[in-house]
Computed example of a mutant assay.
Amino acid sequence: MKSKRQTLVILSPGFPKDRSDTACLPPQQIFVKALKEICPGLNIIVLTFQYPFFAAEYEWHGVKVISIGGKDRGRIYRLVTWIKAWLILKKLHKEHRLIGQLSFWFGECAFVGSRFAKKHHLAHYSWLLGQDARKRNKYFKWIKPKGDELIALSDFVAREVKKNYGVKPLHVIPVGIDTSLFKTTPAKRDVDILGAGALIPLKQYDLFIEAIAYLKEDFPNINAVICGKGPEMQSLISMARAKGVEGNITFKGEVPHKEVLKLMQRSKIFLHPSGYEGFGAVISEALYGGAQVVSSCKPMDKEYRHHFVVKSQGEMNARLLSLLKNKKLDHDPVLMCSIEQIAKNMISLFVD
């Protein structure tokens, strides 16, 4: 009788629809690839609830992906998605030797995954990745997790969970970066300030534009770039026009992940004005890309070279001005976490 394969099931609200879909959750897809590379004998299956917006089974870099295609629809449709997920997990449990389940975010995936794991006595961990640690997450009430079932993305996220829900995640595993994606040859630093992320109110790109308007007084030809799309796009473009910096800021929209990394290696400073950030993979990527990083959030307790945390618009403007005036700005890569080590830390939770 053929023995069942050791299998890890990853539950996620979304996952790339194919290899070219690099803009879909870059940190998570880099993690899954690394996990497959360091554990080539482990069968990894990704069960994705909402995106892609179609139901299918397909292969992605040697990993089987099962897409339910929930399309982010609410009410009865979401319940149907959960039932489908349960039935798929039941089938996988019958066909494979499951070593456990890992849920991305503490949300619907964690809810279905934890329920299934408890029923079948399987290991299950929820990886809290940012906003799921904030107040009013109903899934904490529904799941009632223990600390040893939770993985925090950062020291900051671990503290948020403890503060908001009275339970402290026992594990802290941040996102890592794939250093092989970065060019080894030095790039010309022709971008003064770069930003990258979703153009939503939480990310506070209005502060980015305010900073460029302030800096233009000393640097009339300052060159700034913003990568990302979102509902704030048009209002930000209008704000840039009103502030007289429309010629200084290029809005690139959604850009493939590799192109964002190239831009980081061309940038003097990476500005991340987000008001809340679990970790911010772009921070670690920008640091490794050699950019000086100015952000409003400090994900890890450890201090890192080239990373400056600011608490106000004035402090942000002053730090940016000081960096741009520095003629000997250091652009050596700073590695926060390699993806290989992150994958090893994660798999150690499931195997001895």
Rank of each mutant, 00 (worst) to 15 (best):
residue 134 R to Q: 11
residue 205 Y to V: 00
residue 169 P to H: 07
residue 286 A to N: 02
residue 126 S to N: 04
residue 140 F to W: 10
residue 104 F to N: 08
residue 216 K to P: 09
residue 54 F to S: 15
residue 256 P to W: 03
residue 127 W to R: 04
residue 41 G to W: 05
residue 59 E to T: 13
residue 314 G to D: 14
residue 13 P to H: 09
residue 163 K to P: 01
residue 124 H to W: 10
residue 122 L to T: 01
residue 13 P to C: 03
residue 191 V to K: 04
residue 155 D to R: 01
residue 102 L to G: 02
residue 77 Y to F: 15
residue 320 L to A: 08
residue 210 E to W: 07
residue 318 A to V: 03
residue 312 S to R: 06
residue 51 Y to E: 13
residue 337 C to A: 12
residue 90 K to H: 10
residue 297 C to K: 11
residue 65 V to K: 10
residue 85 A to L: 02
residue 250 T to C: 06
residue 143 I to C: 08
residue 188 K to P: 01
residue 300 M to W: 01
residue 293 V to K: 04
residue 191 V to H: 03
residue 272 H to Q: 11
residue 329 L to C: 11
residue 20 S to C: 01
residue 151 I to E: 03
residue 57 E to F: 08
residue 183 K to N: 13
residue 273 P to D: 10
residue 220 P to W: 08
residue 81 T to K: 08
residue 304 Y to I: 07
residue 188 K to Q: 15
residue 264 M to A: 06
residue 79 L to M: 14
residue 227 C to I: 03
residue 215 L to M: 11
residue 351 V to C: 11
residue 26 P to I: 11
residue 283 I to S: 00
residue 201 P to L: 03
residue 181 L to R: 15
residue 339 I to L: 02
residue 62 G to D: 13
residue 343 A to D: 07
residue 187 A to D: 09
residue 146 K to M: 07
residue 73 R to C: 08
residue 72 D to G: 11
residue 147 G to R: 01
residue 47 L to P: 10
residue 338 S to W: 09
residue 15 F to A: 03
residue 105 W to N: 06
residue 348 S to V: 00
residue 173 I to R: 02
residue 347 I to A: 02
residue 56 A to I: 01
residue 164 N to I: 02
residue 137 N to C: 06
residue 155 D to W: 05
residue 288 Y to Q: 05
residue 332 D to R: 15
residue 66 I to V: 14
residue 94 K to M: 01
residue 306 H to S: 10
residue 83 I to V: 14
residue 244 G to D: 08
residue 186 P to D: 07
residue 204 Q to E: 14
residue 320 L to M: 09
residue 146 K to T: 13
residue 91 K to E: 13
residue 110 A to V: 08
residue 246 E to K: 06
residue 289 G to V: 11
residue 249 I to G: 03
residue 142 W to A: 15
